[in-house]
Design a protein around this nucleic acid. Structure first.
Length: 108
DNA sequence: GTGTTGACCCCAA
DNA sequence: TTTGGGGCCAACA
């Protein structure tokens, strides 16, 4: 199954509904690699390919902090995309994070 | 093949 | 509360 675990990560992220966000740890746990949450981040970095259509902006760290915004074309890209989805972002932090948080383990 | 890095997470002080 | 250290495993040099 996990021939490309990148693809597994992409699948989960693509399942994230609009107006919701998920975390690296949640994805890692959903894939059974809870202790390898860093790999999820690495996978997301490679997810910049438009062909994959992976909404990487909907993936944040455990604190709801936009850790990867600096990896975007512009530092405001990620926040802008999140706000476009109806997610409040303040000071690189997702507001109402508990509300917009989408847990693949619970929702799936 | 070895060493360093990293969109992270958890625990202790 | 904020800081510091350890662990985890793939990708990169």
């Amino acid at each position: 199954m996990q021939q490309n675990f990148y693809e597994q990560v992409y699948e989960i992220v693509k399942l994230v509904p609009k107006g919701r966000v998920t975390t690296y740890g949640a994805i890692a746990k959903a894939l059974g690699m809870a202790r390898s949450s860093r790999l999820v981040g690495t996978a997301i970095i490679q997810a910049h390919d438009p062909n994959l259509k992976v909404p990487a902006h909907r993936v944040v760290n455990r604190n709801g902090l936009l850790t990867g915004k600096h990896h975007y074309q512009t530092p405001t890209q990620m926040q802008d995309l999140l706000e476009a989805d109806g997610i409040e972002v303040k000071d690189d932090q997702v507001q109402n994070f508990k509300k917009v948080f989408w847990d693949p383990l619970t929702e799936l």
